[in-house]
Design a protein around this nucleic acid. Structure first.
Lengths: 151, 151
DNA sequence: GACCTAATCTGCAAATCATGCGAATAAGCA
DNA sequence: TGCTTATTCGCATGATTTGCAGATTAGGTC
């Protein structure tokens, strides 16, 4: 998604108001690569702005999604996660710690549906499951993140 | 998953009981390519066995999943769907009617994560979004299935 | 700076999906 | 037939998300 400043511009130009709640969420989301859930953002936001409502977090996330500034992703049936990365990309989910990383893929255009089933794909999404660099390195177990996996 | 007969064998050999509820669900799931939700199976099962409990449907689906006879898939944050297809395959989701088709993929081994991020993938899943053959054919609109999309 | 109005925020109720638990029931065996 | 234990069932509960209505506030106007 765009920078907080640009989002302020966009909201203003669309007649939407700039509230402290929105500004906080803009900054929490900007360049956030953690794919947070609404709940997680609410927790972080509450630390900086006690009293902010979970409802407002959901509302703002929905608004940004409808504006195309965020995308929603879910893995394995857990809670919806929000992704401010608008570039064409895919995801790698660590089975150990649940971390989700954005990845770019080479040769995706090579894959094709093998059966003659006449399905016309407009988009393709790829999810890798495996072990992230951090969890694969025994020596760094000390500062390994806790398991954030949902379900 | 295996045939109902084979599942009966397996359950018996593991000391599990063969109940009418289980047998019904075995047959409803066998070679079922619709990726039904627990709710959908419950509706179908109820027609043939009034009084069956939704709880039992969930329980049996969970059991079969733990035995490796079913896999669970979710798309776009909807309810969990159950897939009796144990072969290596991927999915194509129709944006129009919500239908989910199993697809085989060629050249999947060609795709690779482009960044040097040291993620070690153990499995890769691909989901195509697009238009299914049925929805792409205007002449067959009359018998087009209704939109089953969850969310 | 005061005022106005619509947008926004908040808290709570409610919908959806899924699981835990205890009592009632029934499968499988002696 | 009777026993043992797995299973079923129904309800309560939990997790996530949305709807609603009243209170609040941003942002423009005078």
């Amino acid at each position: 998604m765009r920078s907080p400043e640009q989002l302020v511009e966009r909201f203003r130009s669309e007649g939407l108001k700039i509230t402290p709640q929105r500004q906080l969420l803009f900054s929490l989301l900007h360049e956030n690569a953690e794919h947070p859930t609404a709940e997680a953002l609410y927790t972080t936001a509450s630390a900086q702005m006690p009293g902010i409502s979970l409802r407002t977090v959901y509302q703002t996330l929905t608004d940004l999604t409808e504006m195309g500034e965020l995308s929603q992703v879910t893995f394995d049936g857990g809670a919806v996660r929000f992704d401010p990365n608008l570039a064409d990309h895919h995801h790698a989910v660590c089975n150990e710690c649940g971390a989700i990383a954005d990845v770019s893929i080479d040769h995706l255009d090579a894959v094709s549906i093998s059966e003659p089933n006449h399905f016309s794909p407009s988009s393709t999404s790829v999810v890798f499951h495996g072990t992230c660099a951090r969890c694969a390195t025994p020596t760094s177990n000390l500062d390994k993140p806790t398991n954030n996996q949902t379900k």
